[in-house]
Amino acid sequence: MQSKPNPSSYRLIFSEVEEIGWQVLLRASPDLSSLAVNLRDEKGRSHVLEIALPWDYPLSSPSLSSDVPYMCELEWSDGSKLRDVVQQFTEHLQKLQEFWSTMDEIDKILCVLYPKKPSLAMSHRQISIGNDCSLLLYINACKPRSLPECRWFGPDSSIEMISKKWKRNYRKWKTDGPFHENLETLLEIELPKSSVSGSSKSDEQLDCGICYAHCLPVDEELGDCSGGEPDYTCDNPSCSKAFHAVCLQDWLRSISTTRQSFDVLFGNCPYCSEPVAVKLNGGKCSSIIQCFVWQLPFLFRYSGLVFSSHKLIHQLR
């Protein structure tokens, strides 16, 4: 059993919070076993530091967590207080500035495919390098300006060429040079840059839950759908997964439980298993079918069939 803190330990924690200032305190658990403080670094980025206080605080050191690539080793001795925690963490933030400015530089200049919304702790970026190839970079948070660890993705032939160049040139990496210029020197190519149009960048791009891509490949086989964006969303509000209608059709057609009525496939969402109905060949439903579908509830009501037709209408609207 862990013993309950006595009133004096509450008083101690209060006075220590007083010292660091109540304005930085974001939240505290009712038993004061965990605190969250909001700190700003020199670039104005805001960092939430979660501080878990052990029951025998301040005898044992608190444990820290925050959205950082790695956490500082907390030095804790007899007279240590919350003030020291904040101070040590602030120094740690200082140390990480170069890492974050490197990541910012990558995000701002290069064409980052993933993650779309990186957290401050993420030290990887997948960037497009053109010709259907991409590069996954792992930035060393301790030495952000050094040669990053990489993995290549793309057609074998191109990858082979790129990795050859990389091996030939990697010594040319300059720890004091701009990151993207270093990459360009090593790869002997000009890298695709991020699309500056701010509006399109801030729009969250939804990827299809089946093929994981935003745009379908450009392919004659896909006809009108070639290069298309997700155009079907699961109706279940707690799922709302986006799909390319063609991907969903392909999936529904590959399993035996799917039923087809006229040119509509009835099956289940691969994510939430709720019923879905997709019109074949995508696109908008023709007006004749639409008229017919609008009649469906009445037809079924009068023929005495139990059939949930509202789903169908919803999908075809």
Binding site: Y114, H124, G154, C211, Y212, A213, P217
Partner: peptide, 17 residues
């Protein structure tokens, strides 16, 4: 297929991370 290739690359990246 192209679609399979693309999806697997994304799964592999996710796995690496």
């Amino acid at each position: 297929s192209k679609i399979a290739c693309n999806r697997l690359q994304k799964e592999l990246v996710e796995w690496q991370v």
